[in-house]
């Protein structure tokens, strides 16, 4: 691995100075689980890294009046095992617990999983159905972006040079909300998603507000409004089939070394149906 410099600021002001060093590419570093392999392979270049783990608030995981605050450097293993997250934001815990291996989950952060912006990342689809809001900070101040507007393409986000994701805010779903994250991969252990589906049903006006997000089948995660609309009217077997077909229509998968688009289309439908069914099962209980 070729040399680079390392900075570890304790304040945001200091961090922004490092990130905007003239003539230098300074890479914000959280868990390093994506950075080290990508840098080593030459996919990412950097003159230096700016370790953001000592910045205020970025390691906090707590409930606030606005909802759950997940600091950018909160670990996947913390999300997966937090009783608070399990109690109210279960679908996020489900996504976090299938990221990589235990060792990776003990270093990988939600901020990193977001900013790497891999289409097959496992926390974005849950964040999509939870209507999370991403909080960004720069010298110019703070801004908030709905997670559904955060990703712009494969490995591209709205984050500007000199700007940091400090965390996400996730509104607290009403009591009785049920969610499921399903992932299909080649191997059962530590593999990337070929297709993933997050489904959430939140009680509303005596019925349910359904939300569905897909991962790994488009340049960014996508919501499936057509399917959501079908289910929000009713979730009998026929509607579930309809919704699954709507998901298949919405997906825009590619063919790569992991899978063909043909198979991915099929799996979007079958996996959506399966995930919706298991949410429906839970609702019946």
């Amino acid at each position: 691995m070729q040399p680079f410099d390392y900075y570890k600021p304790k304040t945001f002001e200091e961090a922004f100075d490092y990130l905007t060093l003239p003539g230098k590419t300074v890479f914000p570093l959280a868990g390093a689980t994506d950075f080290i392999p990508s840098y080593r392979d030459g996919v990412w270049q950097a003159d230096a890294v700016c370790d953001i783990k000592a910045l205020p608030g970025v390691r906090d995981l707590r409930e606030t009046p606005e909802g759950l605050w997940v600091g950018a450097c909160v670990l996947m293993s913390e999300l997966a095992r937090s009783p608070l997250v399990r109690a109210h934001w279960e679908v996020l815990a489900q996504g976090a617990e299938v990221v990589g291996s235990e060792q990776v989950r003990n270093r990988a952060t939600i901020g990193g999983n977001m900013c790497t912006a891999s289409p097959c990342a496992d926390t974005p689809p849950p964040l999509y159905v939870l209507d999370a809001v991403v909080v960004l900070k720069s010298k110019a101040g703070e801004r908030r972006v709905p997670v559904t507007e955060f990703f712009t393409f494969v490995r591209k986000t709205v984050v500007q040079k000199g700007e940091l994701v400090t965390g996400v805010i996730i509104p607290k779903p009403p009591a009785g909300t049920v969610g499921e994250y399903h992932k299909l991969s080649r191997r059962q252990g530590c593999d990337l998603s070929l297709v993933s589906v997050a489904v959430l049903a939140a009680p509303r006006n005596g019925g349910y507000d359904w939300r569905i997000a897909l991962g790994a089948v488009a340049p960014t995660p996508i919501r499936v409004p057509d399917a959501e609309a079908i289910l929000s009217k009713g979730w009998d077997a026929a509607s579930i089939d309809e919704a699954a077909k709507a998901a298949e229509k919405t997906a825009k998968p590619i063919t790569d070394v992991r899978s063909s688009d043909v198979y991915r289309y099929e799996m979007v439908r079958n996996l959506t149906r399966r995930a919706v069914r298991s949410v429906a099962e839970k609702l019946k209980k």
Partner: peptide, 10 residues
């Protein structure tokens, strides 16, 4: 106390 890949830690 946590298992990590020491290749992925600077």
């Amino acid at each position: 106390g946590k298992a990590v890949n020491s290749c992925l830690v600077l």
